[in-house]
Write a protein that binds this DNA or RNA. Sequence first.
DNA 1: GTGGTCTAGACCACC
DNA 2: GTGGTCTAGACCACG
Lengths: 133, 133, 133, 133
Amino acid sequence: MIFRIDADDGLAIYDQIVRQVKYAVASGTLAPGEWIPSVRELARQLTVNPNTIQRAYQQLQADGVLEPVRGRGLAVCRTAVRACVAERQALVLERLEQVVAEAVQGGVAPDDLRTLFERSVRKVMRGGTAEAG
Amino acid sequence: MIFRIDADDGLAIYDQIVRQVKYAVASGTLAPGEWIPSVRELARQLTVNPNTIQRAYQQLQADGVLEPVRGRGLAVCRTAVRACVAERQALVLERLEQVVAEAVQGGVAPDDLRTLFERSVRKVMRGGTAEAG
Amino acid sequence: MIFRIDADDGLAIYDQIVRQVKYAVASGTLAPGEWIPSVRELARQLTVNPNTIQRAYQQLQADGVLEPVRGRGLAVCRTAVRACVAERQALVLERLEQVVAEAVQGGVAPDDLRTLFERSVRKVMRGGTAEAG
Amino acid sequence: MIFRIDADDGLAIYDQIVRQVKYAVASGTLAPGEWIPSVRELARQLTVNPNTIQRAYQQLQADGVLEPVRGRGLAVCRTAVRACVAERQALVLERLEQVVAEAVQGGVAPDDLRTLFERSVRKVMRGGTAEAG
DNA sequence: GTGGTCTAGACCACC
DNA sequence: GTGGTCTAGACCACG
């Protein structure tokens, strides 16, 4: 499990962690029943304050993704996968709609938008495969 | 010129105004040389604090989109159109790439992403034309 | 609006605040649209760290009870009352069931339990009216 | 002697054991002079860390409910019954008062509270008898 | 070792 | 002035 934090994301650090954990659960990288890194451990890895991690984990518990096991740590809930997959898709759709809406409203032609979209996909795929392989 | 402010956008109000003015210039809705509403006027229209409008207009001046004319008000710069068009496209592209990157990294298949994208475009086109016409 | 914090409650301070705000909304003491004391103000009143208040308010936002108004403060959501009333009743019922279940399971006779319950009600009513009047 | 541990109780495991032993003594299920299961035995039965059982037994000794017999184990004190009965009743009363106080303070009408209470008793009696018989 | 809570104090953006 | 975020460091209960 490796998380990447981007301080310039605009999104709060704890929120980036929440999102990445949910995505990891949705994509199977983090399986139900598995242990998530301890608060202190992840804080050390990301060189972030433990409180920030704590806050992220707390929200993940409130969202039913993690469950605490007294004195052991935090485990991925067995019921979380479906919700995470659904949420991920809903989130992507929502953000796509927002971008598309603003672009169209701002006078970008739909066909130009499709071109830009394809360019994005290709770029990300290149970057992703290049980075992964 | 009508702007729409969404308090729940997450984006700051003054930023929404800046963006919408630039989009309006890019799409020709706001032509070079035209006058932009006064701070007080727009603040009244949007029921927003005048300071907020002031801040948006300052940013637009700093970005070279508006220029002050002594005793008259603020006019759209004649040189601003090209920059606004470029910026709009760059902005859309940047946001698209971000969404696409996160989706792919989160395990969404490219084809699923295309489906979601097309759904967004159709939805926005429907909503947009319905709302406008 | 006056909140009372009991450090020996066992329940976390921020949780006591959350519960009291919800109860206040449920009972109409805190009306929809009203402003809630600012983070710093309430922290000063209760001589508690602002972060603790902040955390309580954040959870109340997550629960849809409060909504932030940029630069103004936090207001009680207009849709929150029904949910708060229902939650209050559900919570009371849940806790009653828990106490009753443990008592019965622990060998307390139902009639003795009723006596204890009536004694509690009378005591609280006395205390409440005495305190209020 | 069978104890039931509920990890989601909120109450610490060792505390659940302490309470259940006291209740058992109060209701006569566990008679004075009887032996209580050894730390290891009970830990195995409940699949709980032996340290946790140890802690519960220590607390019970401190409360004068159990007494150690060299080389034999822990026995229920002959003087413990009265204290356990009194403590059980006091505990139930205390918790009832707390729930009632919060409910009334939160705006629940006393008569509504009585209805909720009776509903709880009936539900628990049903569940209890159904489960026991 | 684990998570949970709290304090103290700082910085930011927004209105 | 407002809320939002983060750091630093402390203490606690639990296993």
